[in-house]
Every structure is written in C-alpha cells, then in structure tokens.
Design a protein around this nucleic acid. Structure first.
Length: 567
RNA sequence: UGGGGAUUCGUCUAAUGGCAGGACAACGGACUCUGACUCCGUAUGUGGAGGUUCGAAUCCUCCAUCCCCAGCCA
C-alpha cells in the first residue's frame, strides 16, 4: 500500500486558497485547525471520506490539527456501535486525531450557560407553541412568519422556565428555547430557530440521563467549533443558508473565537446512494446484509469488498473540492482501486465456471510443480509453485467449439497456452446427452514450458487449476447496487429502492482455486489472473469452503469487442 | 424579483483580464505467457444574448437551467 503522504499530493482547491489568503493576512494567529464532525447515527460512507480527506489533509499540509468530534445532540438516533465504527473507519482510512477526540456532549454545560447568556441579553426566549403551531407561525418560503405570543416574555420568566426545562418540569414538546432573531427574515433559518428541545427517557450514550434538554445542531455546532479553537469549519452546501445563524450565535455570546464556515459540495457517485437516511433504509429493510455489506458505499462495506484505504484517498484527491453539484462516474473510483491492486496484489489462478480438461498424452500418475511469478513486474513479490497434472479445470468461457479468429482462446483443433504452463491442443469435445460440453480431450506439447513452440505462433493464454490439487470454494461477484446511474432519481410515486439492481450479487459455489490460495491472508487482495481482484471475505474468513469477494474486474476489452459485434 | 448557491470536454476538475490545461471515460494503434498492465496517438468544452476592453471562461447587464431552505434532524 502506498504511503499516506505519497498518495496525497493534493491539488489546490478554493478552500485551500482561502486558507492561503487567511494565513497571509495573519488571521487566526496563523493557525489552521479543522474538525471532522460526524453524527453517530450511522456508518461512515465514501461521502464522509471526502470530508475526512479534506479536513485531515488540510491539517497535515498546513502543519495544523484536525479534531474528531461526535455531533451527538440527538440521542434518539445515536448509539455506541456507530461511535465505535466511525473511529475505526477514520483510523482505517489512515488518519489520527491523537488526543483530540471530542463530543458535542462534552459541552452541554457550557452550551447551557451560553443559552442563559442569550436569555439575559434578551436574545432567546422560551416558547410554548407546539410543533404544529410553530410551523404555522413560521410562514412560508415566500411569506414572512409571525412572532410567537411568547416572544416578549421577561428575562426573569425565561430564566425560570429554561431552568425548569432543564430540571425536567415539562414534558417532551411542551416548550422549547428559541433564539429571538427575525420572524420576517427571507432566510427561514433566522426565523427564531429552536435552540433547545426537551427529550425525556432517552439514555444518551455519553451523558446518560444527566440531561433532558438537548441543544440543536445550529446552536451546538458554532459553539463547539469555537470552544475547540477551530479556524476553518468545513461543511457541505446545504448548510450555506445556516451560516448567518452560525455567525449570529458566535456574535451574540461571549466567546473569544469565531471560526469561519466554508461550504463545499457533497459527493454523488453513479449507481449508488450517499445519504445516511437511504443507507439506513437499505440496512433496516434488509435490502443488504448490513452496513458492511460489500455492495454498500460505506467505508466498512468497501473495506470488506476489498477496496484499500489508499485507493479511497486517491479517489477523494482526484475528484477535487468545489461548490458545484456533480455526479462522479463510477469508473473514476474503479480506476483508483485497479491502479492500487495492479501494483500490489499478488497474482493467482482461479476458475469460476469449471470445465474439465484431460491431457491425454500426459501420464496418469505424473504430476509436477511449475514455478510462477507472483507479479509480472515486481520480482520482489517472489514466486510460487503450482501443481500440474493430467486433469485440469479451465473456464467455460475460454473454450468454443468454433469461433472466428478474434477469439484467441481454445477452439476445437486449436492450440492455446496454459498460463505458466504448456501449450495444449484440443483434440476432442465430449458432450452429454443434452449436448452440453462436459469435457475436453487435449494433448500438450512438452517442449513449450517457458518457451514458445517452434514454427507456429500461439496467440491465446488461458488460466487453469489442477483438478486434483485445486481447492474448491465460493466466489461472490458484486455489481452496482442500483440500475440507474442517478440512483436518487425516482419516478413519480416511486421509491429509490425501485432502482435497486436485482443482480448486484451473484454467488458462484463451484470455483477452483490454485492451492496457494488455501493460505490466502485476510485483507490481502489477490489478482485472479484474467478475471479480476479478489479478497477473502472477512466475515467468512476461516470457514470452509473459502469465500472470496470480487473487488473489481480487470478491464475487459474482449467484452467490448464482443458487445460491439465481430469487426 | 422569497432567500441562498451553482453552470468549463461524456464525467470530475484547472485557469482568478493575456496560448482553455489535467485526470477519468471514449476511440485508434503498439506490446504482451493476463484480451490485464504499459506505451504511442486521436477526438471532444467555457449554458444563451448583449456590453466593457487591445484582449473576457474570468468584469458588467439581462436571460435560461439545475441544486438547497418552511424538523422540537444533522
């Protein structure tokens, strides 16, 4: 795997340019301090990876710091499984927050005290409107809202009411604390937004039952950033409208720091969804096997699928950071993992659609060990021994009774090279009563080991496994999770799950692996030559038969030729 | 005229008044004991209309299209 610094030769972007300018002007005492602030209500996905690479990458490149902070203000949806998986995934991606692991809940007392300060300044009030009334008073996008009848309560009453909210005197939904800003603002976020709500009976994963009032994101986030001395608070575009509120909060409390919020566009990738809400649905409604299902765009899923951290980082580097919405081609991601695995995956042979092949002129009781390079371009990866014998298994796709000369594999009466072994010739095709090909009878040329035959050219090379020595096992072939490139686009009245690809997983149970694969290591991807990159499924590891996940196919120009018709 | 944002090859992204460049994808070829890898080559773009300027993707005006906002979610 490539080193973190090596793979992150990051091109500039508008955020780095802003930071450059800030540094030039001496803002923030010349410090750069970012944070990655996930809510622990789901697993991290590759969209988060974009943010992680951005935030931690900037911290590293500017000799700054990046905090990991859980935005845990909604205990209803959050839990420790998510807290733990997020830390694992960030670490696996290659980033280290050192001793700076924080929780917004660490600041609950300070948040409360600042709220009291706002109340004292007449900038916040307790409101008794229920949810429905609040909505009615809020107005619409085009019409201003109306002021709450509770908006002009005295400071004393607000102080008392807020204290009683905290003390548990009121039921859920009975009262909220709101900022007093402007009910006529064209920005809905400024129409007296809720600062605190009451939540009884939930056990917060960090604070337990200590609190029954919980602060809202728009209030918590700027305060948390400021308390941590964050200089640049990077978030996605949908929060652009919230920036005036972010700034309002910091401008109206006594806090000696004012981070700058900068927004960038979130990641969209073809044939998948990247919203935690939708991913949660896929898991909860059983469309996938879990958050780490290898078809999921989660970090855990991609890791189990066989994506390397370096390839994900490289992808994030290549897509860049801007403010324009886009839909990144899945090919971009696939190229990143192929490049990594091509350089780093040892080669092996495996057959997935077995076809028996008997070499008639190879003695029945004979077998030999053939040496094969583990990597065609990297001698340091060494060699391995592969047993060869009279009966071998090849792939059904590598034989045709007859074909035009574009087909470079085995045909009746034709020759082909067995990868790392001899040249063979197909003498006879054996079929069953249904006319299915069940066996090939061939001859081999003993003079062709390690050298080309004389006087003729053998164009094709196919892979194989010795029937007697091969290890039988399972391979799981993954395809795109959704049929539509834009998986979020749904027909009127439809659901995004209507776009699910029914063939996103195909399981092949009659596969033959060369013996060296019996020692396959967990988290080590291999290239099954001429097929693709595969990795032991981490969940099934240690069980028999062995189960390999296909990370990604090899680029397949033959498929293109065939699809385009014979030319 | 609710408010906010966006628009450059098919896709992602540079250029910050001075030669529209890169990556991915595509196409053609070379090489090959992986139809892989690698190498060489080709084509493709500033949403539209005006204006300012010696010179505009960039500045101005108007237009079009797309995205976000009416949670006691983040």
């Amino acid at each position: 795997m490539s080193d973190l610094n090596q793979s992150d030769n990051t091109p500039t972007n508008f955020i780095r340019q802003i930071i450059d300018k800030d540094l030039e002007q001496g803002k923030h005492d010349g410090r750069v301090h970012t944070r990655f602030p996930p809510e622990p209500n789901g697993y991290l996905h590759i969209g988060h990876a974009k943010s992680i690479v951005l935030n931690f990458g900037i911290a590293r490149d500017y000799q700054g710091l990046c905090n990991l902070r859980f935005d845990d203000t909604n205990p209803h949806k959050e839990n420790m499984e998510f807290v733990e998986s997020i830390q694992q995934d960030v670490r696996w991606l290659g980033y280290d927050w050192q001793d700076r692991l924080f929780y917004a809940s660490d600041y609950f007392q300070q948040l409360y005290d600042f709220a009291v300060e706002l109340i004292n300044a007449g900038k916040a009030y307790v409101c008794d409107l229920d949810g429905e009334q609040m909505r009615a008073y809020r107005g619409t996008l085009k019409e201003p809202g109306q002021e709450s009848p509770y908006r002009s309560r005295s400071v004393e009453e607000n102080l008392d009411l807020f204290a009683r909210m905290k003390a548990g005197d009121f039921a859920d939904g009975e009262r909220v604390l709101r900022a007093r800003i402007d009910m006529a603002s064209p920005n809905m976020n400024m129409r007296d937004p809720t600062l605190y709500r009451i939540r009884h009976g939930v056990i917060h994963h960090q604070t337990g039952e200590a609190w029954c009032i919980y602060p809202m994101y728009d209030y918590t986030h700027p305060v948390s950033d400021a308390l941590e001395g964050i200089t640049h608070s990077l978030c996605t575009l949908e929060f652009e409208d919230h920036r005036p509120l972010y700034d309002w909060v910091l401008d109206n409390i006594t806090i000696p720091s004012h981070p700058q919020q900068i927004e960038f566009s979130r990641l969209n990738i073809e044939y998948t969804v990247l919203s935690k809400r939708k991913l949660t649905q896929l898991v909860d409604e059983g469309f996938v096997e879990g958050w780490d299902d290898p078809r999921m765009p989660t970090i855990a899923g991609m890791k189990r699928r066989g994506y390397s951290a370096a390839s994900i980082r490289e992808f994030c580097r290549r897509i860049g950071i801007t403010k324009s919405d886009g839909l990144v081609e899945i090919g971009m991601l696939e190229t990143c993992i192929r490049e990594d695995l091509d350089a780093n995956a040892p080669r092996r042979m495996a057959v997935m659609h077995p076809l028996k092949l008997v070499i008639e002129n190879y003695p029945e009781d004979q077998q030999e060990m053939l040496e094969a390079a583990n990597h065609p371009k990297d001698e340091s990866m060494g060699v391995r021994q592969i047993p060869f014998s009279r009966e071998i298994i090849i792939d059904q796709a590598d034989f045709r009774e007859q074909a035009n000369k574009k087909f470079k594999r085995l045909v009746t009466g034709g020759e082909v090279r067995l990868r790392n072994a001899y040249v063979i010739k197909c003498e006879e095709v054996v079929k069953n009563n249904q006319g299915d090909i069940v066996e090939l009878r061939c001859s081999y040329d003993p003079e062709t080991l390690g050298k080309n035959p004389e006087g003729r050219k053998v164009r094709g090379v196919i892979h194989w496994v010795s029937a007697k020595h091969g290890v039988k096992g399972e391979v799981r072939l993954y395809d795109r999770l959704f049929k539509q490139a834009n998986a979020d686009k749904v027909e009127e009245g439809g659901r995004f799950t209507d776009n699910l690809n029914p063939d996103s997983l195909r399981t092949l149970t009659e596969c033959y692996f060369e013996p060296a694969l019996a020692d396959a290591e967990v988290e080590q991807a291999y290239q099954f030559e001429r097929e693709g990159y595969f990795i032991l499924d981490s969940v099934e590891a240690g069980r028999q038969p062995m189960v390999f996940n296909r990370v990604i196919t090899l680029r397949d120009s033959w498929a293109k030729i065939e699809k385009g018709g014979a030319k």
